[in-house]
Structure formats: C-alpha cells, structure tokens
C-alpha cells in the first residue's frame, strides 16, 4: 500500500496573509453583489431610504419590455460582430508583425497604441471624425468628389451600429494582437521547417500547424473579447447616446440610463442580473467548446 501524502495544514500565518485580501474582496465585491441581488427585487429609486420589495415585478417587466428586447438584440449583434472582427483583425496583425523584419517594433507599437486610449477619448475622436457637418470623413468625401456618399454616420440607424463596431474593433484589436503574437512565438520553428520539407505551402502550414497551436491564445482572446463586447458602454454613451432613437441601446447602456437617469435603480439592477447571467452562460459555452480544440504541446 502506498501511503497517501499528508494534506498540508494551513498555518496560522497563511490565514493572516489571506485575511486582508479576503476582507477587501468581501467588502467591495461579495457584499455589493449580494446586495445587488436583493435590490433587483425592489422598486428602489437609488435616492430614498425607502426600499420596497416587489418580488419578480422587475423581471416580469424585463420579459415584456420592447426596449429591453431591442437592447438585448443590439448587445448580441455587438458581441458577435466584435468577437469575430476583433479576433480576425488581431490574428492578421499578429501574423504580419511576427513575419515583418523591418520596423517590427514600430508596427507593434502603432497597432497597440489605440488600446492605451480610454474608451471615452476614443469615442470623442470617432464622433468628431464622423460628424455630419464638421467631420473629417464627410469633408474628405467632398474633397475627392464623392459628396453624394456623405451620410450622417452616427445619426443614421443603418450606419450608427456599424460605426461603433468598427471604431471598437480599431481600439481593441491591438490588445488581442499581443496575445496572438505571444502564441505565435511559442510555436516551435521546427514544425514549420518539417512541414515545408514535406511540401506544405503557407496556407497548409497555417491551417495544420499555426491555427491548432494557437488554440490556447484563441480561447483567451475569444473569451475576453466576448465579455468585453457584452459590456460595451463608453463608445455608445459618447458617440450616439444610444440613438438615433433606440438604434444603439445595449443592455449596459440602459442599465445605466434607467438606474441613474430614470431613477429606477431596482429595475436597473435586475437588468444587470440578466446581463450577468447572459455573460456567464455565453462564457461557459465558449470555454466548453474552445477547450476541446486546444492542443497541448
């Protein structure tokens, strides 16, 4: 019989080391989260001391509200578009900067630069670029004789959603590029050499070596971009304020608007519970699917 290794007992020291972090985490994460669960069952306006329990009323309203349904639809459009476009562009950039020999660091810095900007600043820049009357984009179209293509990019429901998606991709792609680049640099060069000797062309090498071995990086990037996309707020608040009409309202946007602007903190918190569950479910499904195709080297 082989003796089982003794489980290491926690020393008093360990508990004292963990305690400060645990208390902080409890005070700033666990307690607010639990109180949010409670508030989602109330009609609290966010100001008064009168907090009334109303059962599932907020959730019933969520199920029947066309505004919430529209915001959910927009959230999912944003999320899936951003995940696909951000990762496709990031992977492309990573491959390019991995192979380029000339000005390699310059290109890496340039592509990463938008990540350093705050969403608010980025939103303002794009808002100015796309402004109908004073924007660079319309002025450029005028200058090159394509004035007929001028549009109110952020004021037209057909373009506003696309404009926000493209500007967000521009901002986020550099971040995921860095993760993909790390993944690319972890792939042994010998694999490519061997494939090359066997007559595999570049596309075949990418499909059979690079892509499978990037699965770990891809899991991380897809997860992060999905969570980030579901929470999109800054760009919408600055660029369109949810408009025109209700065209770019997302769940996070109306959580803020109903909670703070419309004095319905209880309803806003119930919406945030829905967003939390949505993020959790999508993330779990993503992990389950993506983990299967990860290759251990």
């Amino acid at each position: 019989m082989i003796a089982q290794p003794k489980k290491k007992k926690w020393t008093n020291y360990a508990i004292w080391f963990i305690l400060p972090a645990f208390l902080l985490y409890t005070a700033f994460v666990i307690v607010p989260t639990l109180s949010s669960v409670y508030l989602s069952f109330t009609s609290w306006d966010g100001l008064s001391s009168n907090i009334r329990y109303i059962g599932f009323e907020n959730f019933r309203e969520i199920l029947s509200s066309p505004r919430v349904h529209n915001a959910l639809k927009n959230t999912l459009i944003f999320a899936f578009s951003l995940v696909i476009l951000e990762n496709a562009l990031a992977l492309l950039l990573a491959i390019l900067v991995d192979q380029v020999r000339w000005l390699r660091n310059f290109f890496r810095s340039i592509f990463y630069f938008p990540v350093l900007m705050s969403g608010i600043i980025m939103g303002f820049i794009w808002m100015i670029i796309m402004n109908y009357n004073f924007g660079v984009l319309n002025q450029l179209l005028d200058m090159i004789g394509l004035g007929s293509l001028k549009a109110d990019w952020l004021g037209d429901p057909d373009f506003a959603l696309i404009a926000i998606i493209l500007s967000t991709v521009w901002k986020a792609a550099g971040y995921y590029m860095v993760i993909y680049l790390a993944g690319l640099q972890g792939i042994p060069q010998e694999l490519h050499e061997a494939a090359s000797i066997d007559g595999a062309n570049r596309w075949q090498q990418f499909r059979s070596i690079t892509f499978p071995l990037l699965a770990g990086a891809m899991t991380v990037c897809l997860m992060l971009s999905m969570i980030g996309s579901l929470k999109i707020f800054d760009q919408i608040a600055v660029m369109t304020d949810g408009g025109p009409g209700f065209a770019t309202e997302t769940l996070t946007y109306i959580i803020y608007k109903v909670g703070f602007g419309e004095l319905r903190q209880g309803f806003g918190t119930a919406l945030s519970m829905v967003l939390f569950l949505l993020t959790l479910v999508i993330s779990l499904v993503q992990i389950k699917v993506l983990r299967k195709r990860e290759v251990q080297m």
């Binding site: 808002m127 796309m130 402004n131 109908y132 009357n133 004073f134 109110d152 952020l154």
Partner: peptide, 20 residues
C-alpha cells in the same frame, strides 16, 4: 438639417453662424 441626430446642442450655434 440632415445631420440633426449627430449634432450636439453646443454645435448648433456654430452651424448657425457658419451659414449652414
């Protein structure tokens, strides 16, 4: 004006004085 949905309140004075 066609761009009314992307025009902020504080831009209206500029649009007026610019003759647009």
């Amino acid at each position: 004006d066609k761009g009314w949905l992307s025009t902020a309140d504080n831009q209206t004075a500029s649009i007026l004085v610019s003759g647009k």
